[in-house]
């Protein structure tokens, strides 16, 4: 994280623009996009589903302790829980987990190709590494992360409902109640996942493509790439939340 967040984000914005331009010029192979989508889906789906399922259990366990202390009725927390999961927690948790899973493997794969001179070999074979390697990952990630977020919502709310119903013998169905959810919430979640979905592969690819030297450079690329992908998602999450907060306050 040297040089301040603005310069870092500048490099990523530039890579994004170059990737889009390269993809427009050279085209993107649909099979590659599908391959990356399948890989993303199978590798991240389990992590996100299990992670958010556990997260839901823990969250309502703590909330249960608090609710008993202050007002007794846990069911009143159900609808805001559903809303918070949809608007905030599932998007950010899915994004951070995808950043870990997919960011690490992207930075590792591209970093290894970079130090093995394969990127240059591609270039001399008349292929554009951005169109060939980065663009399919970008498209796949933008398409899959929203689906993974929906999966996260399902996992976190159903685990909360199950925990309340079976562990605490209370009204768990309240935790599946979407009555508070507004169009703004859905929109906010969608904007977050789309932005994070685009940011993760770009941030990871950036460090992978920059890897120079030996095997050590690949390890460094993974470390820096994953951290930047995670931090970028946190920043995006905050900015979008702030934007929607201001918008809703004005209404």
């Amino acid at each position: 994280m040297t040089g301040g967040p603005l310069r870092v984000l500048g490099a990523q914005t530039m890579l994004f623009a170059r990737t889009v331009r390269a993809a427009a010029r050279h085209g993107v192979r649909r099979r590659e996009v599908l391959r990356h989508m399948a890989e993303l889906g199978t590798s991240s789906a389990l992590l996100i589903a299990v992670g958010l399922f556990f997260f839901g259990v823990v969250l309502v366990t703590i909330a249960w302790a608090q609710a008993r202390k202050y007002f007794g009725n846990i069911a009143v927390l159900g609808p805001p829980y559903f809303q918070l999961i949809l608007r905030e927690f599932s998007p950010i948790m899915a994004a951070v987990l995808a950043a870990s899973r997919q960011g690490a493997s992207t930075a590792a794969a591209l970093g290894a190709m970079s130090v093995n001179e394969q990127l240059e070999a591609l270039e001399l074979s008349a292929a554009d590494p951005l169109a060939e390697l980065v663009a399919p990952r970008l498209i796949a990630s933008v398409l899959v992360l929203p689906l993974l977020t929906v999966l996260g919502v399902v996992a976190a709310t159903s685990s909360a409902a199950l925990t309340i119903t079976f562990a605490f013998q209370n009204n768990g169905a309240a935790f599946l109640d979407p009555s508070l959810v507004t169009t703004g919430d859905v929109l906010s979640a969608l904007v977050k996942t789309l932005l994070c979905g685009a940011f993760i592969p770009i941030a990871a690819s950036l460090r992978g493509l920059q890897a120079q030297g030996g095997a050590g450079a690949v390890g460094e690329a993974v470390t820096v790439g994953v951290v930047e992908a995670c931090m970028g998602c946190l920043l995006i999450d905050f900015l979008v939340a702030a934007a929607f907060f201001i918008l809703s306050a004005q209404q």
């Binding site: 093995n116 001179e117 394969q118 240059e120 070999a121 270039e123 001399l124 008349a126």
Partner: peptide, 13 residues
């Protein structure tokens, strides 16, 4: 670059 062929040190296959 069609005019260039390069044999890389790491082979890069």
């Amino acid at each position: 670059q069609v005019d260039f062929g390069m044999v890389f040190q790491t082979d890069a296959l």
